[in-house]
Amino acid sequence: MAEPMLFDAIPQAPNLRSGLVNTLIAQIESGDLAPGQRLPTEQEIVAATGVSRTVVREALAALRARGLITTRQGLGAFVAKDPLPRTFSILPDDLESIDEVLRVLELRMGIEVEATGLAAERRSDAALEQMSSRLDALEAAVRAGEPGSEEDFGFHRAILAATRNANFTRLFDTFGSAMIPRQWTRLDRMTVPEREKYLARMQREHRAILAAIEARDVKAARRAMRSHLTKSYARFETLRDKAGRGD
């Protein structure tokens, strides 16, 4: 007996696989798809969502890799008996649409704003030197036309390290540079003046964070990090809107 269809057609997002994965994860987490329940067949999912069979297979493979579903030869796919993921990670493949980048930025706000306040309170001179050197490396990378993701990640990680709470850096290391989705910036398409303007704006925000941490001004440090991430969020919203208009 076929399982009932539990989802409508997914939005025609830039990455359909991610859209279907997110839809199925939401249904597993909400209990709409219960542990041990058989998933609809590939053809039924195609009919319900409007995506291709290839997209369905890629989405199911992603769910298997996360331990959320299992497959049985000749029987189909089933929700795992213990479907809740034991570890959490963000991989580059998870950031294939701007909406997903925005969700990561929301997560970063929740983590980094508080951490930056702790860094301002607890930082050492060595930690300040580490942050400053990371900013110098970031500036050199961007001037050279490189994305600078690793260097940007290094700066934000140095702030977390300054909290002297290893749980912050352990969490950030789980995500790696996927937390800094610079692939959307496309520095290679910028003219030299555009790149300089981008660099000046980004470094101005970063330097404000560093200055507040150096001054041990907890409130200013939190405010500077929130401002930086909020402005990043707004820039990605603008990119999404432009993409929607076909600009």
Results as ranks from 00 to 15, higher is better:
residue 2 A to R: 13
residue 2 A to D: 13
residue 8 D to E: 15
residue 10 I to S: 02
residue 12 Q to C: 02
residue 13 A to H: 09
residue 14 P to T: 03
residue 18 S to T: 10
residue 19 G to E: 12
residue 19 G to F: 08
residue 20 L to I: 05
residue 22 N to L: 03
residue 25 I to C: 10
residue 28 I to L: 05
residue 31 G to Q: 05
residue 31 G to A: 02
residue 33 L to K: 02
residue 33 L to V: 01
residue 34 A to E: 15
residue 34 A to P: 12
residue 35 P to T: 12
residue 35 P to E: 08
residue 36 G to I: 11
residue 36 G to V: 14
residue 36 G to T: 11
residue 37 Q to P: 07
residue 40 P to V: 07
residue 44 E to S: 07
residue 46 V to G: 01
residue 47 A to N: 10
residue 48 A to H: 06
residue 51 V to L: 13
residue 52 S to E: 00
residue 53 R to E: 01
residue 53 R to W: 08
residue 56 V to I: 10
residue 56 V to H: 03
residue 56 V to N: 05
residue 59 A to S: 08
residue 59 A to I: 13
residue 61 A to L: 11
residue 64 R to I: 09
residue 65 A to I: 07
residue 66 R to L: 09
residue 69 I to E: 06
residue 76 G to F: 00
residue 77 A to G: 10
residue 78 F to I: 14
residue 78 F to K: 09
residue 83 P to T: 02
residue 83 P to L: 05
residue 86 R to V: 07
residue 87 T to D: 15
residue 88 F to T: 14
residue 90 I to F: 00
residue 90 I to A: 00
residue 94 D to M: 03
residue 96 E to I: 00
residue 97 S to E: 02
residue 98 I to Q: 06
residue 100 E to N: 12
residue 104 V to R: 02
residue 105 L to F: 12
residue 110 G to W: 02
residue 112 E to P: 00
residue 114 E to L: 12
residue 116 T to V: 08
residue 118 L to S: 14
residue 118 L to A: 12
residue 124 S to W: 10
residue 125 D to S: 14
residue 125 D to Q: 15
residue 125 D to M: 13
residue 127 A to C: 13
residue 130 Q to H: 10
residue 130 Q to W: 04
residue 132 S to Q: 12
residue 133 S to P: 02
residue 133 S to M: 08
residue 134 R to G: 00
residue 135 L to C: 08
residue 136 D to R: 11
residue 139 E to I: 06
residue 141 A to L: 07
residue 141 A to Y: 10
residue 141 A to K: 12
residue 143 R to G: 01
residue 144 A to Q: 11
residue 145 G to V: 07
residue 147 P to I: 11
residue 147 P to C: 06
residue 149 S to P: 03
residue 149 S to D: 00
residue 150 E to R: 11
residue 150 E to Q: 11
residue 151 E to Y: 02
residue 154 G to Y: 01
residue 156 H to K: 06
residue 159 I to N: 03
residue 162 A to L: 05
residue 163 T to P: 09
residue 169 T to L: 05
residue 169 T to H: 03
residue 170 R to S: 04
residue 170 R to C: 02
residue 172 F to G: 08
residue 172 F to K: 08
residue 173 D to V: 03
residue 173 D to L: 13
residue 174 T to S: 09
residue 175 F to W: 01
residue 176 G to E: 00
residue 176 G to H: 00
residue 178 A to L: 01
residue 185 T to E: 04
residue 193 P to G: 09
residue 195 R to E: 02
residue 196 E to H: 07
residue 197 K to H: 15
residue 198 Y to N: 07
residue 201 R to E: 09
residue 203 Q to S: 09
residue 204 R to A: 12
residue 205 E to N: 13
residue 209 I to G: 08
residue 211 A to C: 05
residue 211 A to S: 11
residue 214 E to K: 15
residue 215 A to K: 14
residue 215 A to I: 10
residue 217 D to G: 08
residue 219 K to M: 06
residue 220 A to S: 04
residue 224 A to M: 03
residue 225 M to F: 02
residue 228 H to S: 01
residue 229 L to M: 08
residue 231 K to F: 15
residue 233 Y to A: 09
residue 237 E to G: 03
residue 238 T to R: 15
residue 238 T to E: 15
residue 246 G to K: 09
